[in-house]
Design a protein around this nucleic acid. Sequence first.
DNA 1: AACACGTGGAC
DNA 2: TGTCCAAGTGT
Length: 360
Amino acid sequence: MSPVDSEFALDLPPPASRPKAGFARALLDWYDTSRRRLPWRAEPGEKPDPYRVWLSEIMLQQTTVATVMERFTRFVARFPTVTALAAAPLESVLAEWAGLGYYARARNLHACAREVAAKGGRFPDTAEALARLPGIGDYTAGAIAAIAFGRRAAAVDGNVERVMSRLHRFAEALPAARPKLRQLVEGLVPEDRPGDFAQGLMDLGSGICQPKTPNCRRCPVARFCDGAAAGDAALYPVKAAKAERPTRHGTAYVAVRARDGAVLLRRRPATGLLGGMMEVPGSLWAEGAAPAASPPCPATWTALNAPVEHTFTHFHLVLTVQVARVADFAAAGEWHHPAHIGDAGVPTVFMKVLRAAGVV
DNA sequence: AACACGTGGAC
DNA sequence: TGTCCAAGTGT
């Protein structure tokens, strides 16, 4: 079923699909003049560095180019090679990743580096072998194989799904349509310059074929595009309805050591939400009333007037913040001085708590 | 297949 | 202001 059936209620025949031969050539020609220069990209004629390609692809998963630009260079400076990354403690990698979100990416990144280092420090050069490594799924495997190793592999991300949906006026909703869209891409990947094709498709999706405002007049492949021909490219891709986000409640305890202003933090369990990251101690988070919790030590605890709110992918969180100045005590955790909390690996939700408490 | 898993920016 | 969105993966 087309999402725009109502517009065809006059029994107009569906617009004919436009031939796609020449799509790759046109995209590559456009890429040659319009490619973005990005820190992890090789310049024309340069040999791509598989480590940088891999790292950038992991960092870019569900994350904007603007955000990664700020972080990529710093990360590479701290961990210059896959061997160096493998040799580093997981905690230091998580600390460098703090604020980027989806922390399983950092745990898998580290595990992947250790596998690669254990096998000689070279990445496998096929999509099939890459996809067996932790944190590398179908998209990333294709992207690395094509970009770093020149393999004829499809790299199908959200950009590419959007471009393909519009190119074919593909009516089936995402994510169910994903396998079929991938097949359509695989039919277009050229033998020559598959890596530039992959990056060109992403640049096109990012700069021209944008989610809300496709700019078909400027598009180098508009002549192949069914959506552009019909003038309804913006209606694609069709997406399935999302589940609504529940609200959870909890309490966080900011214990400030009177002697020096240090704050008590502790490390979260290694897996699950914010796995392995540092946290402000507190209750569990649940829907309805905040679960009962006991403060990390007896003290005069004062609740902040306003709760801290934070929205995760699948729930909204309302956190009551309790603050107290406390004497030194033996606690299950670590004292961190405010000046160094930025290096400790504290995710954003807890940075918000510390800011609200006036600690940082 | 459906859900868990972060964050910041755009509109 | 709330919603959507960004180079997805793992279970």
